[in-house]
């Protein structure tokens, strides 16, 4: 690819009181690429997402966003440059309705310095909120309080709130965790279609290999804070190291690979 990568991560390391959570991570993500991040619990997937979105400061290494150094950026500045995220546990405003959640998110995203002094319920925000709610199929829940929503709908709201500012890089931390099997594919269909329309790069942490196989262009497999495989899914999911350390016995295609491997997480 000749174009500048949307995200370039160089020698990224993170340690907590002597424990290494990320070790020499080198990753490039092209514009519009869909990348699946896999790994057992504790492999360093969320730490990686947290470092890119500014929740954690790396111990060393650099993160570039279209050539611009964004290492150690504050979360709110990450949103401004175009790096947004959703969370493993949905982070929405629990006492507000779906409509109000999106209105606040949109009003902040459209803030030009004076917009904070305007009502979040103004017509242009309302119209855009409705469009988003329809796109994410949560329109019928518009007047429901977020705290009363099902996990699946709340996940969709969480992701919808992450994309209000039209991010160029979207990181989703386990977008289908805690969601029923039927809802999983529905959520991913909606999110991936929406992001492909915008040409955004998506990196998502996922434990379900069916989802990984179906949606991603590339797989990043993590083990003990390191990327042990960076390849297209067809190749990565057959990689012996990935099978041994990530996928585990539940999905192991050969009996030898299953022996002594960590359980499917």
């Amino acid at each position: 690819m000749n174009r500048m990568p949307a995200l370039r991560v160089k020698d990224l390391c993170k340690s907590f009181a002597g424990i290494t959570a990320a070790r020499n991570i080198n990753v490039e993500a092209g514009a519009g690429e869909i990348i699946g991040i896999i790994g057992a619990n504790g492999a360093g997937k969320t730490v990686f997402v947290n470092m890119i979105t500014g929740y954690l400061k790396p111990t060393s290494g650099t993160i570039e966003f279209f050539g611009k150094d964004i290492t150690g950026i504050e979360p709110r500045d990450a949103a401004h440059v175009g790096v947004c995220r959703s969370f493993q546990v949905s982070q929405v405003f629990m006492s507000m309705t779906v409509r109000e959640n999106l209105a606040i998110a949109l009003a902040i995203a459209r803030d030009d310095g004076r917009a904070m002094l305007k009502a979040p319920g103004r017509p242009e925000i309302r119209a855009e909120g409705e469009r988003l709610m329809r796109q994410f199929t949560i329109f019928e829940h518009r007047d429901a309080v977020a705290g009363a929503l099902s996990q699946g709908v709340r996940k969709l709201l969480d992701i919808a709130m992450a994309v209000v500012s039209n991010p160029k890089v979207l990181l989703l931390d386990e977008p289908t965790a805690g969601v029923s099997v039927e809802e999983k594919f529905a959520i991913m269909d909606i999110v991936i279609v929406a992001m492909k329309e915008k040409g955004a790069t998506v990196l998502f942490v996922e434990h379900d290999m069916e989802i990984v196989e179906r949606y991603v262009d590339r797989v990043l497999a993590f083990y003990q804070g390191e990327v042990i495989c960076d390849a297209p899914p067809a190749e990565a999911l057959k990689d012996p190291a990935v099978i041994e350390y990530v996928i585990g016995s539940g999905r192991a295609p050969t009996p030898t690979a299953a022996a002594g491997s960590p359980s499917h997480a």
């Binding site: 709110r76 500045d77 990450a78 401004h80 507000m96 606040i104 009003a107 902040i108 002094l117 709130m161």
Partner: peptide, 21 residues
């Protein structure tokens, strides 16, 4: 205003407000 509505938003979830920018 949006600033005023943040009143409840911050009480509910500071992290989300930060990530919204």
């Amino acid at each position: 205003t949006t600033l005023g509505h943040l009143t409840t938003a911050i009480r509910d979830n500071e992290l989300r407000v930060e990530y919204l920018g």
